[in-house]
């Protein structure tokens, strides 16, 4: 008997998320972010989300739209543009609660959640402002003869994980084709439910025809649902399917500088559904090359 398909629509995925949930978002900075799903959350009635992310425009947009009331992060960047403007604005305007960890602590917290242990020990954070600014963090003393006092990084347990992969099958097996898996498997395992958006849903047999076995980062036990969203990581990097859309990212970062410009940008690109967004992006590039 064939396993049932886990294929969903964008709206069905967002319908599984509830206000107040902790939502982990895969990728890194402005790379392989599940932006089609993020854009769908922007259009939804969801509020009060706790967003956990190696932050890029995903977090900037969710903060700007008032969807995130709490953010756990290690940095916020657009990579080719050092700072994420909407994130910076939210941080200075104090429009949400912020928890800033070392990026290794962040990975360790995801791993603790994935392994279902309450914490994992590490050195990172000792002596730094991270422990002062997050009063929930505790240290733990080694029970062995060394007696070292280490940071007890708490599990970053997620309600929902959202990640974007180059390809997947309908069962939830998914692969990345670029050079870096980031932490997407850990995000999925740290979550009660994990949703994969992908450039292309293909037959299972096709996954390993032209790509190495090791590119199959996610197996179906880790995945709740799959949705095909071509160009769905836009404008972040999704190599080798497509690189970061630097011209568009620059337009985004420039528009984010003033409320007036942002309103125009939002109206042009983010007021419709995903198809409308992709159509507006096509026009943007036609105008640029005209």
């Amino acid at each position: 008997m064939k396993a049932p398909s886990k294929e969903l629509t964008i709206d069905e995925v967002v319908g599984r998320i509830e206000s107040g949930m902790t939502v982990g978002i895969g990728g890194w900075g402005s790379r392989r972010k599940p932006m089609a799903l993020v854009r769908a959350i922007l259009r939804s009635d969801l509020t009060d989300l706790h967003v956990v992310s190696y932050a890029g425009p995903d977090v900037g947009l969710l903060l700007s739209a008032g969807k995130a009331s709490r953010v756990t992060y290690a940095f916020a960047t657009l990579d080719s543009i050092p700072l994420e403007p909407l994130f910076s604005k939210a941080r200075v305007d104090r429009t949400a609660e912020f928890r800033e960890w070392d990026e290794g602590m962040f990975q360790t917290g995801l791993r603790a959640a994935a392994q279902r242990v309450p914490f994992l020990p590490m050195r990172a954070g000792l002596g730094s402002a991270v422990l002062e600014n997050d009063p929930d963090l505790r240290t733990v003393v080694s029970p062995y003869d060394d007696g070292e006092e280490l940071v007890a990084v708490p599990a970053l347990s997620l309600d929902v994980a959202l990640v974007h992969m180059n390809r997947a099958d309908t069962q939830g097996n998914a692969q990345y084709l670029g050079p870096d898996p980031y932490f997407d498997d850990l995000f999925c395992m740290a979550a009660r439910e994990a949703y994969v958006s992908t450039e292309q849903i293909i037959d299972t047999a096709g996954l390993t025809v032209d790509a190495p076995l090791q590119s199959l980062l996610l197996n179906r036990t880790m995945v709740t649902g799959v949705v095909e969203t071509p160009n769905g990581a836009h404008f972040t990097d999704c190599t080798p399917t497509y690189g970061r859309d630097e011209a568009f990212q620059k337009a985004y970062a420039t528009a984010a500088k003033t409320a007036e410009d942002w309103a125009v940008f939002h109206d042009r690109f983010l007021s419709g559904d995903e198809a409308a967004y992709q159509a507006a992006v096509t026009v943007f590039h036609q105008e640029a090359s005209a």
Binding site: A55, Y73, A74, F75, A76, T77, P82, L83, F87, S88, R91, V92, R94, E100, W101, D102, E103, G104, M105, M122, R123, A124, G125, L126, G127, S128, A129, V130, E132, N133
Partner: peptide, 19 residues
């Protein structure tokens, strides 16, 4: 921390690097 005048990158890996 609670009221920054300018947000920078974030601590990134600096706490872990230095220990």
């Amino acid at each position: 921390w609670d009221q920054p005048t300018r947000q920078l990158l974030g601590v990134r890996g600096a706490p872990g690097n230095t220990v």
